[in-house]
């Protein structure tokens, strides 16, 4: 049986990981390569790197970082942030990235999803969607929730699947940072309407939240950042608990 995946997400700026890291054995908490290797060692199934660099040098530093990670890491990883054209994606693929995640660029130009799928295969294309509940509707947001769009989350995801997205990374901006659990209702609803894998994101605060999102929403993977970085949840313990609850995991 296919295992449910646990995915730590790392924010990267200028080739360095940001946010506090609480691993004991880490010589350099800002080194994405060392941090990634540590997560792989702990049993992470996959990693997501979100690049938040805003300088002109971003592409070059991103490629260099991806190469360094790919040299060392023996599990798959996705890279997201600032990918707007085929050339960006191709450079990342050649540097060893397994998947790329696109967000704003796809909203501005949905054809990008189809172009990426055609060039590199659907398995390479993750559509990241930030969603917020507004007046009874789920609305797609950009720029970390600051910019509202006219798109309804459910229909946007369905359209992205038709265009060639291979996986959906859905972040609830209402739940993100609250540590009160994932938005199981929305995730479950969307999971039923699509035939591609979906990664739950936003709201993880304790191990029970992961059990809940797999059991209630039936998602394929769950992503979190701070609970892993600060050592509040340790992946081996999390996976043991999931297994005890009858959820298939890789241990």
């Amino acid at each position: 049986m296919l295992s449910k995946r646990i995915i730590p997400c790392l924010d990267v700026k200028d080739g360095r990981t940001v946010k506090g890291i609480n691993f004991v054995d880490l010589r350099d908490a800002g080194d994405p390569v060392e941090l990634a290797a540590q997560y792989a060692e702990q049993g992470a199934d996959e990693l997501v790197f979100l690049d938040i660099t805003a300088t002109h040098e971003r592409r070059k530093t991103m490629i260099e970082m991806v190469k360094s990670v790919a040299r060392q890491l023996n599990i798959p990883f996705t890279i997201g942030g600032g990918i707007t054209e085929i050339a960006d994606a191709e450079a990342l693929l050649n540097a060893g990235a397994d998947k790329i995640s696109i967000n704003s660029a796809a909203v501005k130009n949905p054809g990008l999803i189809a172009d990426l799928a055609k060039n590199f295969g659907v398995q390479f294309v993750v559509l990241a969607v930030d969603t917020k509940h507004i007046n009874g509707k789920n609305i797609v947001h950009l720029n970390g929730g600051r910019l509202i769009t006219a798109l309804e989350t459910e229909s946007w995801i369905k359209r992205a699947e038709d265009l060639g997205a291979g996986e959906i990374l859905l972040t609830s901006m209402d739940h993100d940072g609250t540590k009160k659990g994932f938005d199981c209702e929305l995730l479950g609803k969307i999971n039923k309407t699509i035939n591609i894998p979906i990664i739950a994101s936003g709201g993880a605060g304790e191990t029970a939240h992961f059990t809940e999102v797999f059991q209630k929403a039936g998602v394929d993977a769950a992503l979190a950042a701070s609970v892993f970085h600060y050592g509040e949840i340790l992946i081996p313990a999390l996976k043991q608990e999931l297994r005890q609850n009858g959820i298939p995991v890789r241990i």
């Binding site: 049986m1 296919l2 295992s3 995946r5 199934d45 996959e46 659907v122 398995q123 291979g166 996986e167 699509i194 035939n195 591609i196 894998p197 394929d220 993977a221 890789r250």
Partner: peptide, 10 residues
């Protein structure tokens, strides 16, 4: 089943 078959399998 979802397609692609993506992830870790025994």
């Amino acid at each position: 089943i979802k397609i692609p078959h993506m992830g870790w399998n025994k």
